[in-house]
């Protein structure tokens, strides 16, 4: 049953990812990106990494894609004509694909990985509760500092983008 779901979600993820790349309409591409993220989230659920799945939906499918859509609509991107594929992109694509194949072969032929796959998934212990416990004990200080990071980012955006008082002289 899990295998079947895995193949379904993987297929959806792949198809929508190709749509993102090949779609001429930028809004359609952004929408297809949401589908990709959702099916990725489902794959995380299959791996019992529920927290990661929720974050994937909330942050990526939610915030990031909405940001993309905002920018697309603000810039009013038109459907662009098919550009000629430059030689360097072809080379990059070939090399990238070769590395991907090498990676798959390396994983397939790795002896240690075959042994390790019997063990328990590390992610399955990663429930929201343990995550919260860690965050408020061991990683309390980094979390507080992150708060300051967000604060100065916000203050900075306001300072840099608010309407300028014309400097004299």
């Amino acid at each position: 049953m899990t295998d079947l779901f895995f193949y379904i979600f993987s297929a959806v993820a792949l198809i929508s990812a190709f749509t993102v790349v090949f779609s001429r309409n930028t809004v359609n591409a952004a929408m297809a990106l949401i589908v990709t993220f959702l099916s990725m989230a489902s794959l995380f659920v299959l791996l019992e990494a529920y927290f990661l799945a929720v974050v994937q939906v909330l942050v990526y499918a939610g915030a990031v894609v909405v940001l993309f859509l905002f920018i697309v609509m603000l810039l009013d991107a038109k459907e662009d004509k098919q550009k000629k594929i430059s030689r360097i992109s072809t080379a990059a694509a070939v090399i990238g694909f070769a590395i991907l194949v090498m990676g798959v072969v390396a994983i397939q032929s790795s002896p240690t990985l075959a042994e390790a796959s019997g063990g328990e998934l590390a992610a399955s212990q990663m429930t929201l509760k343990t995550f919260g416990n860690q965050l408020f004990t061991t990683y309390l200080l980094p979390m507080q500092v992150t708060g300051f990071l967000l604060l100065i980012a916000m203050v900075g955006v306001i300072v840099i983008s608010k309407k300028a008082k014309q400097p004299q002289s």
């Binding site: 980094p142 500092v145 992150t146 300051f148 990071l149 100065i152 980012a153 203050v155 900075g156 955006v157 300072v159 840099i160």
Partner: peptide
Amino acid sequence: VALETATVGFYV
């Protein structure tokens, strides 16, 4: 985290 806080500040 500390490095990123400093770097984001520097961007501004």
